[in-house]
């Protein structure tokens, strides 16, 4: 009997320990952080929502597609990067294409041709972020180069002056953090919100 007790004893301790840990680390800890977030940093904690006239139109951090119901790019909006997730915020995913995958190569070529046509630029000048999908499938950003490339198309489609639209991009370019971390980027949703207010 003594040996059975000795053998079983760590399991009793382990079970009680895990239950205490579950309450402390699995419930109290996240709830405390929830409280801090909701009270002290509610905008961030709830997803950095962007609103137009009081109605949320998305999150500044979650990319969106600006397409019609058939998935065709709408020329009057700045376009996001291609996405393996189709910008479905409920199912983030990357393409996971290896560097030699034939499907990957075909998709690059198709995007290149489509963008050259829609934006009226040479096939050789298209920035790499416009031709590749992001890791998350929800990348909210494009490169400043890709944003500037779209200015003429957007201005034409809206009947606006190019200078005004270019000014919006100028204002939307975010530099590197601290001047050297990451890459310069343009938040597509924020740019398009600014664009929608320019016309009105």
């Amino acid at each position: 009997m003594a040996t059975t007790r000795g053998f079983a004893r760590p399991y009793g301790v382990a079970l009680r320990y895990l239950l205490v840990a579950t309450v402390a680390l699995g419930i109290v800890y996240p709830v405390v952080i929830l409280g801090v977030g909701q009270l002290a940093l509610p905008a961030q904690a709830n997803g950095s929502l962007v609103s137009v006239e009081g109605e949320p139109v998305g999150s500044a951090l979650i990319g969106q597609s600006f397409t019609d119901e058939n998935g065709e790019a709408l020329p009057e909006w700045f376009q996001s990067r291609p996405s393996a997730a189709g910008y479905d915020g409920g199912a983030s995913v990357g393409s996971n294409y290896g560097p030699e995958n034939p499907d990957f190569l075909a998709e690059i070529e198709a995007r290149r041709a489509a963008i050259a046509e829609s934006d009226g630029v040479s096939e050789d000048d298209i920035p790499v972020d416009a031709l590749t999908t992001s890791g998350s499938g929800l990348d909210p950003h494009i490169s400043p180069e890709y944003a500037y490339q779209q200015v003429t198309r957007v201005a034409d489609a809206r009947g606006l002056g190019e200078t005004a639209v270019r000014g919006l991009v100028d204002a939307a370019v975010q530099g590197r953090d601290l001047g050297y971390l990451g890459e310069p980027a343009v938040d597509v949703l924020e740019l398009n919100v600014a664009l929608s207010q320019l016309g009105s």
């Binding site: 709830n46 929502l49 137009v52 109605e55 998305g58 999150s59 979650i62 397409t67």
Partner: peptide, 24 residues
């Protein structure tokens, strides 16, 4: 900007009139 809420998935109407999902 990391979130901390219990909101589940929220549907919003986008600028183009479509819908987008914001996870929580």
């Amino acid at each position: 900007g990391v979130i901390q809420n219990l909101n589940g998935f929220t549907e919003v109407t986008t600028l183009t009139g479509g819908t987008a999902t914001v996870p929580g």
